[in-house]
Design a protein around this nucleic acid. Sequence first.
DNA 1: CCATTTATGTTATAATATAACGCTCATGTT
DNA 2: AACATGAGCGTTATATTATAACATAAATGG
Lengths: 154, 154
Amino acid sequence: MFKPHHNHAKCTAKLISRAEEACEQRGSRLTDQRKDVLASIAESHVAVGAYEIIERMAARGPRPAPITVYRVLDFLLEHNLVHKIESRNAFVACACVHDNATPTLLICESCGVVDEIMQPLANENLQNAASANGFKINRTVIELSGTCQACANV
Amino acid sequence: MFKPHHNHAKCTAKLISRAEEACEQRGSRLTDQRKDVLASIAESHVAVGAYEIIERMAARGPRPAPITVYRVLDFLLEHNLVHKIESRNAFVACACVHDNATPTLLICESCGVVDEIMQPLANENLQNAASANGFKINRTVIELSGTCQACANV
DNA sequence: CCATTTATGTTATAATATAACGCTCATGTT
DNA sequence: AACATGAGCGTTATATTATAACATAAATGG
């Protein structure tokens, strides 16, 4: 189904080291468990459900309880190290650097790969529209489902 | 919590009659059950969960099974008569006319009211960005959570 | 070393959503 | 009318996603 078009080991390593940095900066601890969960999610760029994370972890060690994984997910979400795909109840490791801006998620319905792109113009439009309606944005979700380039070319 | 700032009965009536039209145009049937579910959702502009819909219906007649409500929801979603708030697993009746464009949902975290606005510019930006990445959009989700004007003024 | 917070473990359960199967009823056809 | 078809719905069971409540351990700051 999914074939990485890049050196994924390198990709994961980079992600973990960025996560370590981010936690250090914020004075929070990236514990082994948290690193494990993050690594499980980062196994691919495909969105993964919480219970699939449990399976992946069970394959390499003791099976964590759901609450354990959800607790870690909360931590990782707060630290912007993973994103929740709301339209799928699934998670992906954050693939790009975005300070406070909201990424647009491109979700392939065929292979499941989730790509992140920064779209400052769209964010600005939405911010303006919200303001015009007297609405104060706390959180923005932009998810586009469809067909990725790789799958379109098959 | 929520106090309508308008004549809601009128609002619902309009919604139902629009739904009837839409179904007629598409040659599908807006059965009593479907009308009931739609009316339950449209009781307010607050997003409502599937099981809360069941409660509302149970208050006025026999309690429907979850699958029943979900089936109706599928129908209503397909016909664009309701929207699913993905970030909340909840539903609202479609409040405005939008041909094929995607509405932006403004979700108040305080009162739960969901407002719909059309944001052609943002849609266009996202479409362009997707195209630039070779991504073909099938479905777009834009959800802004925050504080609505009414709640900000309290 | 103690107090406090943060992290984790354990058990149970809540909330959301779908599968599978069969019956009924409207509709169109012969 | 008799029949075939498919849409709508009923019923039972179960899958999937997420959280509550309470106990223990481990890190951190004074």
